[in-house]
Amino acid sequence: MKLRVEVVALDCLMVRLFDEIAEANMPWMLAASENLRAAFGGHLIDLVPSYTTLMVHYDLTALSPAQARELIAEAFIDLSPNARTGATRHVLPVWYDLSVGPELRLLSQRSGLAVEEVIRRHSEREYQVFALGFAPGFAFMGLVDEVLAAPRLNTPRKKVAAGSVGIAERQTAAYPVVSPGGWNLIGRTPAKLFDRNRDGYSLMQPGDTVRFEAVDHAEFINLGGDDTPLEAQA
């Protein structure tokens, strides 16, 4: 870890911990988040975690930039990696099918693997939730098997169905709501990823782990999935 504190706005400081994306960073990121929340207490407005950084947005009427830096320093005094005590392990059911995941074929061609093998490799790993962003409840997860890594589509789709599961480079994610998107789609989950009536709102939180589990069409429908083909929704 190489800790740096940078100015990003009048009332925001960026706490930079790492320079590379790695699963091994997560226990440190979680511990730092927890300590920062405790140090700032009621003066914290928002803490925005990403892969290697934690952005601290504090109450400017309560703290000067210098005082905020002191609190950050305080948060790092006795930092030890957090063994994910509060983290949840999720299993997301996915119906992997060309009608809802048209890039299964592209990933199969790129990797030289059969479609079934692409599915197996995507669903065998346990992924880390690195960060949430792009849309409420949209969790950036990784890292995906190198042979499945693929760049985003040249032209993003105007409309990606809710629940769509995709791959971009070595990351994977599921779209919580209908939105535009450029990820390579490989399937769809019936899981409700963001729910304003649920405690914590988002199914997944930074630091959680996720495994995808292949289900057949009948079970997907049983679980409340919408099997409308992608083209029919465009």
Binding site: V8, A9, M14, T53, H57, G133
Partner: peptide, 10 residues
């Protein structure tokens, strides 16, 4: 850059 938090007015 690796994606990171965006403050208001960035």
């Amino acid at each position: 850059m690796i994606s990171e938090g965006i403050p208001l007015g960035a």
